[in-house]
Design a protein around this nucleic acid. Structure first.
Lengths: 121, 121
DNA sequence: GTAATTGGTTACCAATTGGTAATCGGGTTT
DNA sequence: AAACCCGATTACCAATTGGTAACCAATTAC
């Protein structure tokens, strides 16, 4: 019997697929969630603070990821004219809306780990 | 003035960071969320069904991602002894727990896109 | 008998991601 | 004056990711 392909033809489905694609594109990579999570917790941070706080990130990566996310309007970059010039990074309103997602991700990770632990007992 | 580094020393913080790292490792890559989302919607699917439904994925990638996620106990693989042998993939209970996260991701993507659209008007 | 379907695997290759280390200019501390 | 902090940027390199295309054995439809 020949099988007919069943495609995702409903609008609901197409929209969801596109939305997931968009979100993944913006949030892809090893560091974005860590940076966002750190900013969610500390509110305002300077470059060197982030470099110290986000464990293991190199300045190059931090710089690149910050630029990416600034372009995508998730974080804001403000140059402050202090004695040695400082730069403050913070979440934008859009960036703040990622709060629940990050929280959910962290909670899932915790639940996942504890499930594995219980199975190994 | 010399700055003292402020590290993430609270247990709460460390746990969260580790959890996010775990989750990202398991869910990394271009396709996992799409496959999981599709399985969440259709419940049980065969290899070729997934190949058709997950837009643009190559058999090699599908195979690899399915193996990855099977190892991590997010999906189950069942060989069915039908006339031409078929293989059924489905979410495990653990995999099902990703439902809210995927939903949140999709909703965020939709909200993000509509915000951009409103700004461009 | 020929072609197609099922569930993959393999070889090969290109692009992206990410890491290391050095550098830079301006300013401050010692 | 020497050395260090700030916020990066650059050159170079290695590893991972992902894509294309071909192939496999078994079975079935035409």
């Amino acid at each position: 019997m020949k099988k007919e392909a069943v495609y995702n033809t409903t609008d609901l489905c197409k929209t969801r697929i596109g939305a997931i694609k968009d979100a993944l594109e913006i949030l892809s990579g090893k560091w974005k969630f860590h940076i966002l999570g750190t900013l969610l917790f500390h509110k305002k941070m300077r470059f060197m603070d982030l470099l110290r706080e986000v464990d293991g990130i190199a300045p190059k990566m931090l710089s690149k990821e910050l630029q990416d996310m600034e372009m995508n309007q998730l974080i804001s970059r403000t140059v402050v004219q202090t004695k040695p010039i400082t730069v403050e990074y913070a979440l934008t309103d859009m960036g703040e809306t990622l709060g629940p997602l990050i929280k959910e991700l962290a909670e899932w990770g915790i639940a996942y780990r504890s499930t594995l632990y219980n199975k190994e007992k």
